[in-house]
Amino acid sequence: MKAWLIMIATMFVDLDHLLASPIFDPDRCSINFHPLHSYWAIAGYCILFFIPKCRVIAIGLLFHMLTDFQDCLW
């Protein structure tokens, strides 16, 4: 249950979409456009993966980035 709640909480990374104008653009790739979806942030999420206490958070964030990346392919 705790891991599930942490994974759901990682969806708050999408709050950085509120900084964009327009907030939603169906043709925009989130990866490297929004601050928390940047390559630097993704590298930080990869580093978090190697810290045992942060691993569940890192997995949630990396999975989120993977699903957002799929939008870039279509």
Rank of each mutant, 00 (worst) to 15 (best):
Y45T: 09
C54H: 12
S30W: 14
P35C: 09
V56E: 01
A43K: 03
C46A: 08
I47K: 00
H34W: 15
L36R: 04
A58Y: 10
W40T: 08
I57R: 04
I57T: 06
F49R: 02
Y39L: 06
C46G: 13
F33E: 15
Y39R: 15
F33V: 09
N32Y: 15
A58S: 11
V56H: 05
F33R: 08
H37A: 12
I57Q: 05
S30P: 14
I59W: 09
A43I: 05
L36C: 02
G44R: 01
S30V: 10
A58N: 00
S30Q: 08
P35N: 11
I51P: 06
S38P: 13
H37E: 04
C29V: 07
S38T: 06
K53M: 07
C29F: 14
I57K: 02
Y39A: 02
C46F: 04
A58M: 07
F49E: 14
R55V: 00
I59F: 03
I31P: 12
P52F: 04
K53N: 00
H34R: 11
H37M: 14
I42K: 09
W40D: 06
P35S: 06
F49G: 05
H34S: 07
F49Y: 14
F33S: 13
S30I: 13
P52H: 01
C46K: 08
H34P: 13
N32W: 15
L36D: 12
G44N: 02
L61M: 03
F50V: 00
F50G: 02
C54W: 15
P35E: 01
A58K: 05
A58W: 05
S38L: 02
V56A: 12
I47C: 05
H37W: 15
I31S: 09
F50K: 02
G44P: 09
Y45M: 04
H34C: 13
V56K: 08
H34T: 13
I42D: 04
S38Y: 05
I59Q: 12
R55E: 00
C29R: 07
R55M: 02
N32E: 13
I42M: 09
P35R: 11
A43N: 00
G44A: 04
Y45S: 03
I59H: 09
F50Y: 11
A41Y: 11
H34V: 07
P52K: 11
N32C: 09
C46R: 03
R55Q: 00
C29K: 12
G44F: 02
V56S: 00
A43Y: 14
W40K: 10
L61V: 03
P35D: 14
I42S: 03
I57C: 03
P35Q: 10
I57S: 10
P52Q: 02
